[in-house]
């Protein structure tokens, strides 16, 4: 059964940026969009074993720190070669100043 996990405070993430969130043996990436909305995807690129948290967020795109592969972090859609496999995404809710993800 999926659980809501208290992942971080809203202000742990800067606007148009992301942080890494590890839970058990899994790793996630949590994003704050320029519109102040929050999103969550798998933490590693689908192309190589690289943490997306070191990548650059521009608008709604996360660019992998290694190969310039890009995803739309709202949908997980692969946007630019060499990535071709979409990222898994997870529901997010904000309660007060806390960000929860459902995994």
């Amino acid at each position: 059964m999926a659980d809501w996990i208290d992942a971080c405070a809203k202000d742990d993430i800067e606007e148009e940026d992301l942080i890494r969130f590890d839970h058990g043996d899994r790793t996630f990436a949590i994003y704050r969009s320029p519109e102040d909305e929050f999103f969550c995807t798998d933490g590693r690129c689908t192309h190589e074993d690289v943490h997306l948290a070191d990548g650059l967020v521009m608008d709604h795109t996360i660019e992998c720190p290694k190969h310039n592969g890009q995803f739309d972090y709202r949908t997980g859609e692969a946007k630019r070669a060499p990535v071709c496999v979409n990222l898994a995404t997870y529901p997010v809710k904000v309660e007060g100043d806390r960000v929860f993800i459902e995994i």
Partner: peptide, 11 residues
């Protein structure tokens, strides 16, 4: 360390 400089190099 690792990809620590990646973000700023992309900027």
């Amino acid at each position: 360390q690792g990809s620590a400089v990646a973000k700023d190099i992309k900027i």
